[in-house]
């Protein structure tokens, strides 16, 4: 078990190197720092001096890989590759293009993201599983048929509609909750209700339909027939036997995204004005702050790999058949 986890962690290293190379290529080789400076400074008539200043301020003035002007090891250290890409491995994200400490921002902003994402995930899971169980109980009836049609219709609606519509109805017409904003502490809950609710409703169609498929697949298996042959009632069949088997794919499917919850949701956070990592990323994209986008790409990759590892481990926890080796 330990050996397995260590091996998987080691396997993550080449993947992170790969991610690093991809981002490096994207951010520094396809376009040079000069291009970025011009883009950032905006005007047509930028002087060379202005560009150099911009680059020096942000540490983009060094050569990409090899600094011929430096001595010894420094000729590798004083390069963009070393300062901007390799440092990511020790989670040293440096400063954003507008000069703020990225690590500090991240540590501040992940909590609001979690405050939205965690309840959204848990409530969504609970609601979807409940609905799916109900539908599975009424399988092959008109209830089942129309439930699936409604699910398909719900998942055909753009997430933007749920947000705009929800804000309009709940915040503007009914005025039950504030449309947007955020506050930490217990009074902040009123700001969380709407985004969490909308997130749950927006995801309900696809996840209910998916879980229904899992339940039905499970209900066609031989062991269910065995249980029925014992004279066990249908509800017990569903709850004690089918649910327990179906939860294996459902839970392990959830585990992979758990770490990514830190990253927050881009759309939800920006619509509701929540100062989380999602809106942080969006702002960075809109301001064309490459340093932040680069850091978030790397962070996302790390969290994804952790998610994969957690998935494998969770299999051994919930499925007695799986042993890691």
């Amino acid at each position: 078990m330990i050996a397995y986890i260590v091996r998987r962690a080691l396997y993550a290293i080449p993947i992170l190197i790969g991610v690093n190379i991809i981002t490096f290529l994207l951010f520094f080789v396809v376009n040079t720092p000069d291009d970025m400076a011009r883009m950032f400074l905006g005007q047509k008539h930028v002087t060379e001096v202005q560009i150099e200043d911009w680059k020096t301020e942000r540490g983009y003035h060094n050569p990409l890989f090899y600094n011929a002007g430096a001595e010894g090891l420094d000729s590798f250290k004083e390069t963009i590759f070393y300062t901007k890409s390799l440092r990511l491995f020790v989670f040293d994200f440096g400063r954003s293009d507008s000069g703020r400490d990225i690590s500090f921002d991240i540590s501040q902003r992940m909590w609001p993201s979690l405050a939205i994402a965690v309840p959204q995930l848990l409530i969504g899971l609970l609601v979807a599983i409940t609905f799916a169980l109900l539908i599975a109980f009424f399988r092959a009836t008109y209830i089942d048929y129309w439930a699936v049609v409604i699910c398909v219709a719900l998942m055909s609606i753009s997430s933007l509609f749920y947000i705009i519509g929800g804000q309009f109805v709940m915040g503007k017409l009914l005025r039950v909750v504030p449309i947007s904003g955020f506050e930490s502490g217990i009074f902040g809950i009123k700001f969380l209700i709407l985004p969490v609710l909308i997130g749950v409703v927006g995801g309900i169609g696809s996840s209910t339909r998916w879980y229904r498929t899992i339940f039905l697949e499970e209900m066609n298996k031989d062991y269910v027939r065995t249980v029925r042959a014992k004279g066990i009632a249908e509800q017990t069949v569903l709850f004690r036997h089918v649910l327990r088997n179906a939860l294996i794919p459902i839970l392990t499917g959830v585990v992979v995204i758990l770490p990514l919850l830190f990253m927050g949701s881009l759309i939800t956070e920006s619509f509701f004005g929540i100062p989380g990592l999602g809106s942080y990323t969006i702002d960075a994209i809109n301001r064309q702050d490459f340093a932040i986008v680069r850091s978030m790409v790397f962070l996302g990759a790390v969290l994804y790999i952790i998610g994969l590892l957690l998935t494998d481990i969770s299999y051994t926890v919930v499925d007695p058949r799986v042993r890691l080796s």
Binding site: D222, Y223, A229, R244, N245, R321
Partner: peptide, 16 residues
């Protein structure tokens, strides 16, 4: 009335 089935491999619940 009780019943036993052909496939013992799949006829028992794997996680109970």
């Amino acid at each position: 009335i009780s019943m036993i089935f052909q496939e013992p491999m799949t006829s028992l619940n794997p996680v109970v």
